[in-house]
Computed example of a mutant assay.
Amino acid sequence: MEKDLTEYELIRSGRKSLTIQIKTDGSVVVRAPLRLAKYRIERFVTEHEDWIRTQQKKAEKYREQVHVITEEERRDGILRAKKIFPERTAYFAKRMGVTYNRITIREQKTRWGSCSSAGNLNFNWKLLLMPPELLDYVVVHELAHRKEMNHSPHFWAIVEKELPDYRKRREKLKILGRQLG
């Protein structure tokens, strides 16, 4: 279903340029300088009609591929995560000879896990919606930071020692991660 291009949200600000943004729901946002005449904005939108339609089709395709998480999935996932992450973390920490402090379960949009310098670990519960080997990869990745707080070659050698196929797991995580919305 094509959206009417005469319908767009206009946001005026102190900016100097005119831009068009297509949101993931296919709606159009036009950002314009405060004093730019309305007819120039409308002409700009008309001139970019093909580009707008193309981006809306891409947004629609993206929405079809993304799994929208229900409240029930979220609730159940967080409960399971509170059990599974401590188990997997304890298992790999023992194997890797590292310690850690607190484990926190979160829901981040862009991160699967993190490790603070104090040894506190954060994990994204959404990992439970993926194959278990990806959860293990994130756990090992974060525990490796207990030895090396960076992503140097030494860090990756620690990860590889525990998970020789970590590169495949990391790539699979990137691909599947885009499908969770």
Rank of each mutant, 00 (worst) to 15 (best):
H48L: 11
S17G: 11
Y91R: 10
R146N: 11
V98W: 13
R75G: 02
L163A: 12
S17D: 14
T110I: 02
E133M: 08
A118P: 00
K23N: 13
R31G: 08
T54I: 12
A93I: 08
V30S: 07
R178P: 00
H145I: 01
R146P: 05
P164N: 01
S152E: 09
A37G: 02
I52D: 05
W156V: 04
P164M: 02
D4Y: 03
T24R: 13
D25K: 13
W125I: 02
L34Y: 11
R111H: 05
V28I: 15
A157Y: 04
R43D: 15
V139C: 13
K83V: 15
V68G: 00
V28C: 03
G77Q: 09
H145L: 04
F44A: 06
I69F: 06
P86Q: 09
I20Q: 04
K58D: 10
V28P: 05
L143I: 11
R75K: 15
S114D: 04
W112N: 01
I41C: 13
I22N: 02
W112G: 06
E2Y: 02
I158E: 15
F92A: 02
S114Y: 14
K161I: 01
R111G: 04
S152G: 07
R43T: 09
Y166K: 04
D136P: 06
Q56P: 11
R146F: 12
S114Q: 10
V29P: 08
E148S: 13
S117G: 11
T54W: 12
A93R: 02
G97M: 04
F92V: 07
L143H: 00
W156G: 01
V30N: 10
K174G: 08
K16W: 01
E171M: 04
W125M: 00
L121C: 09
K57M: 14
W125T: 00
D165P: 06
K57T: 14
T99G: 15
D4C: 13
F44K: 10
I103C: 08
M149N: 02
P131C: 02
A93D: 04
P33S: 08
R95C: 11
V138T: 10
E133A: 09
G97Q: 10
A144E: 00
K94S: 14
K161W: 08
T24I: 06
S152V: 04
I52Y: 14
A37I: 07
